[in-house]
Structures are given as C-alpha cells and as structure tokens.
Design a protein around this nucleic acid. Structure first.
Lengths: 413, 413
DNA sequence: CTCTTTTCTGTCGATGATCGAACGAAGTGA
DNA sequence: TCACTTCGTTCGATCATCGACAGAAAAGAG
C-alpha cells in the first residue's frame, strides 16, 4: 500500500477537488479505490470523467485492470491496480561495509533483495559500478528489462545535499564529496534517481511500512554511530542544510572525559555508540571491535555487555528526552545493529524519557523497536523512489506524453 | 505584505495551475501582482478569466481598485489591493500579567495597539470580557464597526489544543483548562477565532515580519520561563499533542541541585529562566522578583547580574546546540524580556552553539535578537488571524456566498 | 428458466467555464 | 494629430465535464 499525501488532509490545505490523472492514480495506489465506481464516489466526479481518466492511465501503462470483482448484487466491477508488471524501482542501501539492494514494484511489494559486503571507501566509481551490476542482475532474475526500472532510491552513510544528490563532506566516504551520484544512473537507465542519508531512508521505510498514519515519528539508529531520521507531517524533515537529525554529537552530561572523532568531548556517539561500547568491553577484557560484536556478547549472556547496553540506553534516553519536549513526536522507533538487543536498550531509553519528559508529551508516546529491521534502509530507499515516481508532476507528465504520442498532432498534409 | 504559502513551491507540491479566486487573491495579497495584466502573466490564465475573477473579488469586498498606475507606454493599469478599509483583524497577546491587543488590517499593517495590565489568573470570563471591551474600543477609535472585524488571533501563556482552541492543563492559567475560548468571541462577533500558545504566535510574528523567506526558524523566548516556537517549511510545528517547543524543562548538565516547579531538577528554566536569575540575585543581596528586575539590574551595570545573564546564555546555548544538530534551523531568534539585554545573553548562547554544534549546521546559522520586540506576540496573533481569514477555503466560501446572494436563483414565478 | 432488479461501464448530446480574437480605453512619443 | 503601446472588456468559439441513457453482467424472485 502506497502512502498518500494530500487527499485525507490533516492540515486542511492541499487541493480540494482531486481532478488530474495523478490524483486518480494516487487513490488507486493507496487502495482507497479499486474500481471506477469507487473513484467516482470518492472524488465526486462523474463516472464518465473517471472512465476517461482511467483509460488514460491504462494507456500510459500505469494502471492494470482485472476481471473478477465481487458483485454486490449487480454487475461486478473491474478491479483497478497499479500496473506492477513492468513498473519497478530499486532501493539501494549503502553502508560503510555493505550494499543491500531491494527490487520493489511500485505498489511497494519487495520482489527480491540482495546483500553484499562492499566497502564504501573504495570510492564512487567502484561502488556504483557494483550497484549497477547488482541491479541488472536482480532485474534479469525477475525476468524484467532495464526499461521496467522507473526509479532508483539510494541511502548513503553521510550527509547529502538532497536536491542534487551529492554527498556533503561525508566523514566516512572518502572520494565521494560532491560526487553527482544521480548522473551515474541517469546515464545508464531511463529512471529517476534520488539520494538521501541512510538514516533518513530508514525513517521513511519504517514510517511507510509500519506507521503510515503517524504524523510525527523519530527513527533512532544505534549502530557504530548514532543518528536520527525525522518524520513531520508524514514527510522527512531534512533541515536547512539537509543535516537535521545528527544527534550523535549532542553532549551528554557527566562524560567530559570521552573524546569524540568530531573533536568535541562527551558526544552521545562517543559514549553510547556501538564503537564506544566495543572499546569499553575490550578494556574490560572482552574483545569487541564493532556494534555487532557487542550484540554477540549480550546475546551470549555477558553481564558487562548487558550493563553497558542498558547504560547506553539511558544516555540515549537523556538526549531523546530533550527531543521529545522539543519535537513532541507520537512514535520513537529504535533501529540499527544495537536494536537487535532492544530489550536492554529500550529499557534504558524508556526509563529516562518517562522520567524526564513532559507528561503531556509522553502520555501518548510509543517507544518501540524497529519492525523493518535490516530491511529498513533498502525498503525506505525504494519508497523514496516510488514516491518520486508517483509524484503528481511526474505522473501528469507521463500521461500527457502518452496522449501527445498517440495523437500525431496532424503535421504536414 | 502577506506571507504566501503555495505558489513559489520549494518542495514541489501544492497545486500547479492556480485558478480559484483564492489563488488570485493570494497573489494580490503577497504583492506578487498588482494589476489584472500582472495576474494574467503570472497565472497563465486568459485576461478575460482574470477579469472575471477580480470582479468576483471586488464584488465580495475583498479587493479594492485604484486608478493611477504608472504607464509603461500604454494605457496605465488599475492597481489592485487587498481591501483593507473594512477588513481588519485583532491580534491578542495574553500574558501572565498583561493584555496587549493590536488592530491590524488584512494586509498586515498595524492600525493601533493597546496594552493593559491584566491578570490571566482572574479566569476566562473576566479576562475575555476585558479583551472584548478593548477590541470594541480599538474598533471605535478606528471608526470601524464590529462587522469589519473578520478574524481574531489569540496567544495565551500555556499549551493549547489548537484545533479546538482550548487550553490543555495550563500551569499558570487557573480556571482556563479546556475553556472553549473561540466560542466566547464567535457568539459576539462574526469572525474566525484561532487560539495558540504565546510562544508559537511570537515565532509566527517574528517569522512573517522579519524572516518571511526563512524556511526553518526557532524563536526562543527567555522570560520568567523559557519556551521555543518552531517554524518548519514556513509553518508552525506544533507536534503531536501541540506541546512542541517546550524546552524549558530540558535537563542541563551540572545543575542537579536546582529543583524546578515541574518536579524534576536541573531544568533549563530552573537555572536560566528570569525567575531563577531573580532568585539568585536576591540571594546575592540584589533584590529582584522577575525577569524585568534582572534586566533593570543589568542595565544599571550590576556586574553580578551581567555575569548571571551571560551564564544563562551559555546554559540556553547548551540546549540550543543540541537542537541545532537535531533540527538544523537557518535562524534562531531570541526574544522575551531577557532579550532586552541581548548583548550579554546572545554572547553566551553563540559561544556554546558555535563550539558544540556541527559545522555544517552552524555555517549558515544566524543567531539574532528579536526585531519585533514586545510586538511579537500581538502581531503574530494578528498574522494567525489574517492567514486563517485569507485561507483558500474561507475565501472561496466568501466568494461563492456573494455570488449566490447576487443571483436570486429564480425561485417562484 | 425467465424476468426483474441491481450495479457497473461506455456513449453522446448538453452545459458551462475558459479561451482568444477583436474592440474600445487611455496613456506615450514623434 | 497620429501612430503605437498597453490595459481591460466583450463575445463567440472551444473544450472539459456532466448527466441521462443504454448496454453489460451479475444476483435474486417467481
């Protein structure tokens, strides 16, 4: 099910009378209407008008029609669906050391997923060539041609200038600064390309998959570092420079001894990130290099690891308690590697938030572990791609082009 | 000049082809178009269509027309303006101990302002009766009838359920909980009524008056308490329960001894609010009761007061440094009583933010004192009123009603 | 099994909003 | 005074939408 923006308008703006083909498609995609009669009832447009719009959408290969609707006492309606057969997108999750790609159809269904180890530090040319090969492989496995790929969404582990899709001084992506990632793919595919921060696409994926009706959501990723994706009014909040949600370098009290790679001390990430926990465990005699090692120790029942994770939860909770007062979200989702031991992490987080935040803000606040797990980023990137493909401007453009291609505009004589 | 939402669309949605009377009015109100020919050029609609729309707006008494445009070589255009003669709003700023009301026309110009001492604790009936009298007084002074008042915006010192305009367990407004403020005025005026938190309307006022093109702005009010109004995408962010921006009870490190009226300790407000500073000064032998007294001591050159204000700035800066990383605003405006000594307050705030926040987030960040000063809340409340009056739904309703009133729908024969 | 009722979908003339050409109005400049 | 330009209005033409009608395809009654 696709997320609708507009239509059911909480804030009361957006267009009042949905008329264009894109609006009709949105209703079909959202599952709000599955037949022509439904569409007429919902939009208030005449059935003849709806039929015409639907014809345009079918002509444009955006909608498919199937027989076999349930009769409610009369002629059974023909079912309308997004045409998923040859409209797919790729959701690409690039991490520091992995590349995970999901092939999804435009209704949001995942067709296939593939994960590889891949070092982002090898630079854009190498990494993107790998991504290109994997996408072609997934398309071939699904017996699809590259023409079926309509959009690509990519999440990368660093700040991105969203409008241009260029990384903005990313600390752990050497060679990627200002590299025009979209160009690489628009030269090779006839597809839209959108690039965003990995935490943002995780937030998007979690929101669309698990909390589509939530208006204000925070997705906290606790991995080697700590970051936060922000959903406001159902949309990603990226901030003025596109670096909103970078909570890993917020100061926590009482840890001025902990130096951080950013140059400051007492950063949340430097005391509660997976890397920091691994270091502390190593010092205590339990060798660990990464967040995954910490998780392994917790799962093996190591009490020191368990204690550290719970304490990390409290520290993260201290920062989140501030953000709850400031932002007043409905849901906080905790993801990232450390979320695999969310029992202990969430206990610490909840404890502090419920003690420190305002009752009005916490009364209806849910603090939950991720439901999408390791898929969050790839599906989120896919959702980013789908939503840009289904955006009104794009749909209306496609329909208009299909129309003008059909009518030869009577040139010559 | 009125703030436009939509039209110049940064995010790329909103309606593409502006057609309705409300869209035409928006362009006139924003000053984007002052003549029929302008409107035709901007909207792309035919001049005849525009003329028809403008006629409707003039008929509905929303637009006025004046001769005397500058000729550019041909017939001079007639100038179109919002009809301000009999379209005014009231912006009401209710504080703990004062009531300030601005009468504004719908173009945003302030016609008159009146401030009274008034205790909010006297309860809704008493306070609102006072407001009612003052509004009638201001209208009479401006030689306007109550019919000219189209909308009322009200800022109150406590949380409000914005949709209904009812205070939500406000701590310093005894007797006001869940009181339906809008009803009081809709029974007495034919006007729209919108109620919001005082910090929110201050943020709105500052944004519209001083930073209309800024997309992400924080307005920090440092008075007896400390609060924050949030502008995101040019709109107020109110959060899930409408209590977003309540930063006064965020914990600051190293002050666990400071108890707060909320029951927790080390709250920002309890260590850096005007009330807290006054208490500390009193202990040091300089009697002070409120934030104003603190300001007076600073202005008198009291070094202890000066030191405390600067230290308060650092503490506020510590909290804001976190919020800059999280929210990534373009502008932070500091207002409230303590902003009268903003030299010292801002020094502390800037010092900490520039040290603790991410360079990417602070690079283009402006941290400035309020420009609207004591008018922030009243003008912001007026802006709230104006924007609701000029909202497309409302304008289209007014025009439609005027149309149907003119055509007698040929009943009977 | 037939006929009626119901519901869905397409067709086609009617309607009404918008357009665009033409015209009058009101200025500038040679 | 006479082009020339720009602005605003008028009015017939046009095109999207509507709504009545008819056909299609099922359920249900007799």
């Amino acid at each position: 099910m696709i997320y609708v923006r507009g239509m059911t308008t909480p804030s009361g703006d957006e267009r009042a009378v949905p008329g264009s083909p894109a609006d009709v498609l949105t209703l079909i995609g959202a599952g709000s209407a599955t037949t022509r009669a439904d569409l007429a009832r919902i939009t208030g447009l005449a059935r003849s008008t709806i039929s015409q719009r639907v014809d345009q959408l079918i002509e444009s290969r955006l909608v498919s029609e199937t027989e076999g609707g349930e009769s409610t006492g009369g002629r059974p309606p023909r079912q309308l669906r997004l045409r998923t057969a040859d409209n797919v997108v790729a959701g690409v999750d690039l991490g520091a050391t992995h590349c995970r790609i999901s092939l999804m159809d435009i209704s949001g269904r995942t067709l296939a997923t593939h994960e590889d180890p891949l070092l982002i530090s090898e630079g854009p040319e190498t990494v993107l060539a790998h991504v290109d090969r994997r996408i072609r492989g997934l398309l071939a496995d699904a017996k699809l041609t590259p023409e079926a790929l309509k959009a690509i969404g990519i999440g990368v582990p660093g700040p991105v200038e969203f409008a241009t899709g260029r990384p903005n001084n990313p600390p752990i992506m050497p060679g990627w600064n200002a590299y025009p990632i979209p160009d690489y793919f628009t030269e090779r595919y006839n597809a839209l390309v959108k690039v965003d921060n990995d935490v943002n696409v995780m937030a998007l994926g979690e929101h669309r998959a698990a909390f589509p009706d939530t208006r204000y959501l925070l997705f906290v990723k606790v991995g080697t570092g700590i970051g936060c994706g922000i959903i406001a009014q159902g949309r990603l909040h990226r901030g003025a420079q596109g670096c909103a949600g970078d909570i890993g370098h917020i100061r926590v009290s009482g840890h001025d001894e902990a130096g951080c790679r950013c140059g400051n001390s007492a950063c949340l990430e430097a005391v509660a990130g997976g890397g920091a926990l691994a270091r502390k465990l190593t010092e205590l005699g339990f060798p660990a290099e990464s967040g995954s090692d910490v998780v392994a120790l917790v799962q093996a029942g190591n009490t020191q690891a368990l204690r550290l994770v719970r304490e990390a939860g409290r520290l993260i909770g201290e920062v989140l308690a501030s953000l709850v007062n400031f932002f007043n979200p409905e849901v906080i989702v905790v993801g990232g590697v450390l979320a695999k031991v969310h029992d202990h992490l969430l206990a610490g987080i909840r404890e502090v938030i419920y003690r420190r935040s305002l009752p009005l803000a916490t009364h209806h606040l849910a603090i939950v572990p991720t439901r999408t797990g390791a898929d969050a980023a790839a599906t989120g990137a896919g959702m980013l791609a789908i939503e840009h493909f289904l955006a009104p401007e794009n749909i209306n453009r496609i329909v208009t082009e299909a129309e003008s291609a059909k009518t030869p505009t009577s040139t010559g004589g």
